[in-house]
């Protein structure tokens, strides 16, 4: 039997960059846009993009509960940038104002666009737990992790600030390893 593929949530965002990153490592993937497509996957990547758009579409197509069940079954999930916001428990703003209703799988408080607007986007080295060499972190209108719960492990830091977290089988990164040069092979460590 061939190994099950990794699913990439492809409702909106940079899912093609994640696909290219998995391709380079010879990992099979499928795009997930509907619940039945998730059922065949052994792991899930939630890409960068706009979290308002993605949560809205996730609810319209009925993927919220299947993703929660997927996580509860212990299967690995990785979210980058907007993906981190979708995995978070709390978003530091008035939900009625912006309409992001996250999944609540990571006990963290995040602030959308926490580093500023696009003119404040930046690239810099990120230290990764268990890895000797830093990876290049691409921060694009990135979310900022403001608070981390007791069960949450810090897996990546930038200038001492937490930019990557893991809680059990769920990992969230504020930056885009898939959009960096040295960091393209990073996501797979979590899957």
């Amino acid at each position: 039997m061939t190994e099950q593929p990794i699913g990439i949530l492809a409702l909106q965002g940079d899912f093609t960059l994640h696909a290219a990153a998995l391709d380079r490592q010879g990992v099979a993937y499928v795009y997930v846009r509907q619940p039945e497509e998730l059922a065949a996957c052994r792991g899930l990547v939630i890409p960068g993009g706009e979290s308002t758009t993605m949560t809205r579409l996730m609810d319209i197509v009925g993927l919220r509960q299947p993703i929660l069940d997927f996580a509860a079954a212990g299967k690995p999930i990785l979210g980058t940038c907007a993906g981190l916001i979708m995995l978070a428990a709390r978003v530091d703003e008035d939900e009625r104002r912006h309409g992001v209703h996250p999944l609540g799988l990571l006990d963290v408080l995040v602030r959308r666009n926490g580093y500023g607007r696009q003119v404040d986007s930046f690239m810099d080295e990120v230290a990764v737990a268990g890895q000797a060499d830093p990876v290049q972190g691409v921060f694009i209108r990135a979310p900022r992790i403001l608070e981390v719960g007791p069960k949450v492990e810090v897996v990546a830091t930038w200038r001492g600030e937490t930019v990557g977290v893991r809680q059990g089988n769920v990992t969230g990164l504020a930056f885009h390893p898939e959009a960096g040069e040295s960091g393209v092979d990073f996501p797979i460590h979590f899957i």
Binding site: A10, L11, Q12, G13, D14, F15, T16, L17, G48, G49, E50, T53, C81, A82, Q118, S121, F122, M123, V138, I140, R141, H176, A179
Partner: peptide, 17 residues
């Protein structure tokens, strides 16, 4: 060129929208 990657990066994030 680094700055260009950040610019194109945002365009990538808008894909499928």
């Amino acid at each position: 060129q680094e700055r260009m990657r950040l610019k194109v990066g945002l365009a990538e994030m808008l894909k499928g929208g």
